[in-house]
Amino acid sequence: MPSEQNRDRPSLPPDPEPVAPPKTGTTMTRQEFVRTLGLATAGVSGAVALVAISRRDRAPRDPVGPDTVRTLPEPADLPGPGAEEDVLLRMQRELRQAMAKPVEERKWVMVIDQRKCVGCHACTIGCIAENKLPPGVVYRPVTTEETGVFPNVRLQFLPRPCMQCEEPPCVPVCPVDATWRRPDGITIIDYDRCIGCRYCLTACPYGARTSDFGEYYTDGTVAGDGDVLAADGAKAWEHQPNHELGKRWNRTGHQSPMGNARKCHFCLHRLEVGELPMCATTCIGRATYFGDANDPRSLVSELLQQHQTRTLLPHLGTKPRVFYIA
């Protein structure tokens, strides 16, 4: 727009450059400079120190030692080792043996045999029911991968619990220390501390953390105390507290774990009473094995020895404790 520019040009001020920068206040006195250096050093080293301190391995905040030993008597009326028994019973027996050791001597691992997984999603729903997970929260989805071209097709199912990484990237990012790795290798979240920032969700490469946004499965159904229809009278199941981490959690009224990040905890509350994680229990293909890798005679140790197992996204260096046989 030349005409406009012509109009503007006369009003352009003289080139600002010639104006000399004012002299006053531009320089720092020596004292100021020293102080600056001092402050900067203090600031930076303070920050470094904070980070360094927090990076240091803290003393475990979980109970360890003899207090954590659980004596779970062997029921006399079960088949026992050597007899023909469901692997679930064998794993449960080994679990009881592991629980007899202090927590720090247990190394829980899961071995998932994809050859046996029938893609039934029983584990997914079993976990949801066991932990009373709301819509949008899932600890163990099972993915389906279809490959090939007719008639040479392949379907593969991949159940994905939390990998209980030995180097869990989800832990250090938590700003409030609400999540940590226990002495038995299970990474848990204390929902009461978690502020719900979802940083850990972004940090987990496996998508194993999901957030509880406060939904209910019965949202959108008929409401009211109804005489004719069951209505609200039938919704009590969704408002029962759950047992995660051996505590009583009831979400009603935006209580934790609503608003929090949530994740698989290998069903610690079931281990505590000598029961297998729900997903292993309810696996109809018996594709999910669970046990203590520190026990060389355990089924999981056997499997890890016999098979070339793989872990997911090994290049990320997270060192999962969930192993797959494909």
């Binding site: 920050a47 990012v173 938590c174 700003p175 501390r193 719900g196 979802r198 608003g259």
Partner: peptide
């Protein structure tokens, strides 16, 4: 960011129990 938190009222935790391995805590403090 406060409104984004699942538990907004626990925001002070970042100051009370920070973990400086977290860039978020570090950020907040800074």
């Amino acid at each position: 960011v406060g409104l984004d938190l699942g538990h907004m009222l626990r925001f002070p935790s970042i100051f009370l129990h920070p973990s400086f391995t977290s860039m978020m805590a570090f950020n907040a403090w800074m």
